[in-house]
Simulated scan of single mutants.
Amino acid sequence: MTTATPTFAFTEPAPYWQSGVDDTLQCVSVHDETHDVRTFTFRAVPARRFAYLPGQFLTLELEIDGATVNRCYTMSSSPTRPDTVTITVKRVPGGQVSNWLHDNLQPGMKISVLGPSGEFSFAHAPADRYLFLSAGSGITPLMSMSRALGDLGGSMDVAFVHSARSPADLIFRHELVQLARARNGFRQAAIVQSRHPEPEWHGLEGFLDLPALERLVPDFRQRAVYCCGPAPYMTAVRALLQAAGFDMALYHEESFNFAELTSAAAPEPDVATACDGEGEGGFDVRFAKLGDVVHTKPGQTILAAAQQQGLRVPSSCSKGLCGTCKTKLLEGKVDMKHGGGIRQREIDQGWILPCCSVPLTPVVLDR
């Protein structure tokens, strides 16, 4: 573990971080969780306290090989410890951003970020009992939730089941064990595909299936489930729960595999529709909280216009797939052709994705 030399003193509490205004983090420590997973801890510059929901993410803006690259990483830290935030990153073979972070980011370095953002948090639907299911680096948002619940005290009933390739790949292994020892209402278990290189492993071996889940969490049907991991893992979990008669209204999932997302093609906005009638000259888009106004060209998405005119808006896939740029439409109409990054109920509530929305009228956004 490496750390930066402290350059601050404890004085009055710092003001809170303002998304859209504050944007600079300084790395203060780097800690190896496993052979290919590292946790990076940051403080704000200037000093700020962080308020966010457990499970939310930050969008990193990095300069890599002369280009600006955006990537979302869930915070593994808890908002109950507001002076720093952490992200926990697995090195992915061929992964542009994860490899850059592992190879380059050191204590003292500064990066630009947007957020926090995201809807994956138990705070949106509090329950009496939770089941956290994760695989690989998908553990990060659920670790944030676990840390928050552990810090807040009071009654808790959490069962946490994490899947990994081997015991050596178990992220936060010892901390989860310690949390379970410290809190009576917290249980944890791990399942590994292979016990190598730890032949004395006494936990479950194989893959999460219904017999294993019923053995570990007999009352899982009465719990709110939060799931995060690789897409095949979450597909298998959904199938498992559905086959078990689980009420899928209690199921929540999150995934940030942007390498796959950005390789998929999202539908283009309907330029003909956007350019009809009085839209021939484009429309103004006002960002209510930021106070900025941009003008879209005919057929141009809101995000493209904002970026072209120098406005920094949270985004990642830019194809309507990841939901990073999601915001509320306060006034006006848009033509949105998304690729799955927004739920129908969110659309019904007035949410849009600027990356794939073309204004049909002047627009006001809640951002």
Rank of each mutant, 00 (worst) to 15 (best):
Q300A: 03
G154C: 09
L213V: 01
S112E: 12
V37H: 10
M145G: 09
D32L: 06
S315E: 10
L152V: 01
P13M: 02
S146E: 04
D83E: 15
S98E: 15
D151G: 01
G115R: 14
T86S: 14
T39G: 08
R147H: 12
A9L: 13
D209T: 03
G339R: 07
E331S: 14
L60D: 10
G136E: 11
P116C: 10
P93Q: 03
S255P: 00
G229C: 06
G229M: 07
K333I: 00
L105A: 11
A148L: 05
P362L: 09
V89E: 05
R215I: 00
G350K: 09
P126M: 09
F207N: 02
L250D: 02
H295A: 09
P298L: 06
Y130E: 11
V97A: 08
R312L: 13
A305Q: 05
L216N: 11
T140G: 13
E346V: 02
S146Y: 00
T59H: 06
N104Y: 09
G55Y: 00
A14L: 03
P362R: 14
Y233N: 06
P314M: 13
F10T: 12
L176G: 00
P218C: 12
V313M: 15
T301C: 06
I342W: 04
W17D: 08
E268L: 13
V45S: 12
P218T: 14
E61I: 03
G150E: 08
V113M: 11
G94V: 04
